[in-house]
């Protein structure tokens, strides 16, 4: 009996404080650098307006006046981080969620379109991949179209989708979800084609010697082999789905959603509002990708992947 299980490396014995510093220090450094650059850029970009307001170059004002002015404008070219933070806080925590001024409300509208589009796109992507892998005709005929579809800018397609569906009486969530779907079926289809083709010839020969049915080959071999490809694709898909939903909100007349918030912000020169909507959008993106990553870890654990 050979008892030769793969030995796992012993955990590195570093004191926990050292480890904490080692992992946090680079992050803190980068964040500080970004803030320094940002405040500097705010001074530089807002200075012309502030100088005008202070009475021009000849008037008597100090550097302190200039800096204070550039960091506290109502409609700055580039708002300072603390201005965005205040607006973000007010529109997230200090506003009722059902109010049109609440960022949570707008984020919720966008998230529902994102998730619906993501689900539709995932299903479409998987169905296309299954077809492409199993039918030679589809492999030849469909894949070029799938790739071509992504070369058309989404900004060109979004208004048409909204107009056509609006004509059919479909408004609100669905047109946005369809724009999201249009973006996110692509990574899923490409990833799943690769994943479903990932079993090696021996694994397929094995199924042949068992006289396994095509359905058994799919569910017991191709599908489980494809899951790790699927999740890599899903992470990309959920992120582009969010982009699709926001873009989809731009031509809908700016009723609700983060896209609408961006649009109305730019109509009225509310740069701070635009920035806090941007922050919200990126937070939503991070959370959604994180959730997909969590699902990936659960599935990977069930499949016995090395931790």
């Amino acid at each position: 009996m050979t008892s030769d299980t793969a030995a796992l490396p012993a955990p590195l014995r570093v004191s926990s404080i050292d480890a904490f510093v080692a992992s946090v220090a680079p992050v803190v450094t980068i964040v500080v650098a970004i803030f320094v650059l940002w405040y500097g850029a705010a001074v530089w970009l807002n200075a012309p307006q502030v100088i005008d307001r202070l009475g021009g170059h000849d008037a008597a004002w100090t550097a302190r006046d200039l800096v204070a002015g550039t960091w506290s404008m109502d409609r700055p070219v580039l708002p300072a981080p603390h201005q965005i933070a205040r607006d973000f806080y007010e529109s997230v925590f200090a506003t009722r969620i059902d109010s049109k001024r609440s960022l949570v409300y707008h984020a919720g509208v966008t998230i529902s379109a994102t998730v619906l589009g993501f689900l539709l796109g995932t299903v479409l992507g998987i169905v296309l991949a299954v077809g492409i892998v199993h039918l030679r005709v589809l492999d030849r005929s469909l894949l070029p179209w799938v790739i071509a579809s992504q070369t058309v800018p989404i900004l060109a397609i979004a208004p048409m989708v909204v107009v056509v569906l609006g004509n059919l009486g479909l408004e609100g969530l669905l047109p946005k979800a369809i724009i999201s779907m249009y973006l996110c079926f692509f990574p899923v289809a490409i990833g799943m084609v690769k994943g479903l083709r990932s079993p090696d010839p021996l694994q397929l020969d094995l199924m042949r010697t068992y006289n396994a049915s095509p359905a058994q080959v799919f569910w017991k071999l191709r599908w489980p082999a494809a899951t790790r490809f699927l999740f890599a694709s899903l992470k990309v898909a959920i992120a582009v789905s969010l982009v699709g939903a926001i873009v989809g909100e731009l031509p809908t007349g700016a009723q609700a959603g983060l896209g609408a918030r961006l649009l109305s912000g730019s109509y009225y020169g509310q740069t701070i509002q635009i920035w806090s909507a941007l922050i919200m959008a990126s937070l939503v993106g991070v959370v959604l990708v994180f959730i997909v990553g969590l699902a990936e870890r659960v599935v990977a654990k069930a499949q016995g992947a090395p931790a």
């Binding site: 021996l202 010697t209 068992y210 006289n211 058994q216 016995g304």
Partner: peptide, 27 residues
């Protein structure tokens, strides 16, 4: 046919006993 290939061709997402049970499930 019970075919043993040059490489083990185990299914990475199945543990040992479930790998052995694979043909039994199919059959």
């Amino acid at each position: 046919y019970g075919y043993v290939f040059q490489a083990p061709a185990l299914y990475a997402w199945r543990n040992v006993i479930r790998n052995v049970m694979l043909p039994l499930e199919i059959m």
